[in-house]
Simulated scan of single mutants.
Amino acid sequence: MIDEFLAGDLTDVEEAVRKAAAAEIMPRFRQLAADEIVEKNGPHDLVTVADRLAERHLTASLTALLPGSVVVGEEAVHADLTLLEALRGEDPVWIVDPVDGTRQFVHGDPAFATLVCLAHHGELLASWTYAPALDLMAVARRGGGALLGGSPLRSGSPEPGRDLQVAVSHYDFTTDEEKHVLGKLLTDGVVPRPCGSAGLEYLRVAQGSLDAVAFSWENAWDHAAGLLLVAEAGGASATLTGEPFRIAGGNTLPFTAARDAATARHILDLLASAG
């Protein structure tokens, strides 16, 4: 069933993502009331009514498009951690972040995205990265390339001699040890900065406007869509031990995704030097 589904043009999935954003996210953009914003794990980790309703909308529409599939969504997992077991299960799984960059969304910044990735047996098969306030839709299909607005995406390679531009885990969300390791990127030839929406940072790598990301957390909904997008645009990714990132977790962190394999190796070498 999954092979037959993937053999289609998948435009119904793109339409489902657009409809969820149009119905539940954009009407609330810059219109949120104070009681529609809640802290989850601290003042920087926010969730809104838009996150919850968009995830509910996507859960219904995506499972209807692919009967027998299940959804692992950020907000549902926050309420029930056992849902993560679906990432190791036999059913096709939709990995969903309804509003990636909730802090940006809450503050009226348009740089947020809805992320959807279809996976099976740990393999990333197709992904959608949609920034509704920016009118950007990036789609990737395993072995089929990556598109932005219907045009091919190619990450290319950094220009020789130019400083590498790297987005790293935001300092508001990192431990002292993670800051120490990521601090190894503060060196000649590398210019790190705190990341915004992870999904949009991956899109920038796929476009070639950002050279790499280096992240110290492994939530599948933040990374699955972007990792496939970068891979299909010609980029590379790996964990600190050089292994592929596993969406079910248990990765050696931090990890990187970069415009090409040489850049990924360089970033990992610097991170490993933290000892």
Score class of each variant (00 low, 15 high):
Glu85His: 08
Leu228Trp: 01
Val47Ile: 11
Leu228His: 08
His223Phe: 05
Asn219Met: 14
Thr82Asp: 14
Glu74Phe: 12
Asn251Gly: 08
Asn41Asp: 03
Ile37Cys: 01
Arg30Pro: 13
Gly250Tyr: 15
Pro254Cys: 10
Leu58Asp: 04
Phe173Cys: 13
Gly122Gln: 02
Ala34Phe: 04
Ile37Asp: 02
Gly275Arg: 15
Gly89Ser: 01
Lys184Ser: 10
Ala16Arg: 03
Ser273Leu: 15
His180Asp: 06
Thr174Arg: 00
Leu46Pro: 03
Ala272Arg: 11
Ile2Leu: 10
Val49Asp: 10
Phe29Tyr: 06
Leu115Ile: 13
Pro27Arg: 06
Ala21Leu: 09
Thr63Pro: 05
Ser169His: 03
Leu186Thr: 15
Leu58Thr: 01
Asp211Val: 01
His121Cys: 14
Phe112Gly: 10
His107Phe: 15
Asp91His: 14
Asp12Ile: 07
Phe29Met: 04
Pro254Tyr: 09
Ala248Pro: 05
Glu159Gly: 07
Asp100Trp: 01
Lys179Ala: 14
Gly275Ile: 13
Ser155Asp: 12
Arg265Lys: 07
Glu85Gly: 08
Phe5Ser: 13
Ser127Asp: 04
Leu83His: 07
Ala126His: 10
Val93Trp: 03
Lys179His: 15
Val13Pro: 15
Arg28Ala: 01
Met26Ser: 12
Glu36Cys: 08
Asp176Leu: 08
Asn41Gln: 07
Ala22Asn: 12
Gln207Phe: 06
Leu164His: 03
Ala113Val: 02
Ala214Thr: 00
Asp9Gly: 07
Ala133Met: 09
Asp172Trp: 10
Val70Met: 10
Leu153Asp: 07
Gly8Leu: 08
Leu134Lys: 00
Asp109Trp: 01
Leu134Ser: 04
Pro152Val: 04
Val205Trp: 00
Ala214Val: 00
Val99Thr: 13
Ala264Lys: 04
